[in-house]
């Protein structure tokens, strides 16, 4: 349904005075989403997760230039098409209740989304009612203002906006940080249900544990590239291909809690070769001259020349 290949995002920024520099924040990002599946995008902050979402929704700032291809239902996503599809065929489940209009009742806001998607007013009303029922929102929640609903209820309202939009593709941007584990599970299950209805879901998160609870496939981003795309079972079964993914898995507190030292390279000083080479335990001479291409290894995709071992 959605296919992103070789995506790059470059910002032009000012240094001291009038000199301008080009900062390529995303280089060679690839991602594929099918109908009916949840694809988790995980990575450290600054790895380009959110920028991917912004690029798909066409809401990057003015000074950004985008390269590569993004196909949605086989058609390229142009800025005009992004604008047309945003909130209709492609919906966003935002991070927090702060994204709702504080002065408008939540029922009305969800209803407006339904109406913008071409439902008549009475049809939109029924859709809202059904959706709220489905997510166990009490009937009076409809008439609440955003500040009156609890954290868990707010999540359900935000998911409701994606449900009534009839969107084919739902992008959830960090929907779970700092939440109680019960609310996290609940929110993730709602996303799972959306996929079961035949939509594609992109779950953007830094929390690999949460991602593995619901995702079919996990795309691991590192320094603006796709390091690996693995199926969710590969994690527990030890079938991981990229050393960074393995490091992420090992560093979970429920596993070894052993991190790889160092930090993600900054966009200003990317190594010429493999982006992970300066922290990698497997690094050899062959890693340094050029960036490895994304290739298939054991029914997954990986950007590492040593992944076969």
């Amino acid at each position: 349904m959605l296919s992103v290949s070789n995506l790059s995002v470059t910002f032009s920024q000012y240094e001291k005075g009038l000199r301008r520099k080009q900062l390529t924040v995303i280089t060679d990002l690839d991602l594929e989403v099918q109908a009916g599946e949840v694809v988790a995008v995980v990575g450290a902050s600054g790895s380009g997760k959110s920028l991917l979402a912004h690029a798909i929704l066409g809401i990057l700032p003015e000074n950004a230039a985008v390269g590569g291809t993004m196909l949605f239902h086989g058609q390229p996503l142009t800025p005009e098409r992004c604008q047309q599809l945003r909130g209709k065929a492609i919906a966003l489940v935002p991070q927090s209740v702060g994204y709702l209009d504080p002065l408008m009742r939540v029922g009305q806001q969800v209803q407006r989304v339904a109406q913008l998607n071409g439902l008549s007013k009475p049809a939109a009303r029924t859709a809202v009612k059904q959706t709220f029922q489905r997510y166990d929102l009490p009937p009076q929640a409809d008439r609440c203002y955003p500040f009156q609903v609890s954290g868990g209820m707010a999540r359900r309202v935000l998911v409701s906006t994606a449900v009534v939009s009839q969107a084919d593709l739902v992008i959830a941007d960090e929907p779970t940080p700092g939440l109680h584990p019960d609310v996290v599970t609940e929110t993730l299950n709602h996303l799972r249900e959306l996929a079961q209805e035949g939509r594609g879901v992109i779950l953007i998160t830094h929390d690999i544990g949460a991602a593995l609870l619901v995702a079919d496939r996990v795309a691991v981003f590192y320094a603006g590239t796709t390091a690996e795309i693995a199926s969710a079972q590969d994690f527990a079964s030890g079938n991981l291909r990229h050393p960074y993914t393995q490091a992420l898995w090992r560093s979970l507190p429920q596993n070894d809690f052993v991190p790889v030292p160092g930090t993600q390279p900054s966009p200003e000083a990317l190594p010429v070769g493999c982006l992970f080479s300066d922290r990698c335990p497997w690094v050899t001479e062959a890693c340094l001259p050029e960036r490895p291409a994304l290739r298939a290894v054991r029914r997954g995709l990986v950007r590492c020349i040593h992944a076969d071992r």
């Binding site: 450290a44 830094h206 992420l248």
Partner: peptide, 17 residues
Amino acid sequence: DEMTAMLDANTQALIWQ
């Protein structure tokens, strides 16, 4: 106070170490 709730697992482990 939830010092590493916003960070990925590797960074979280690094910082706590």
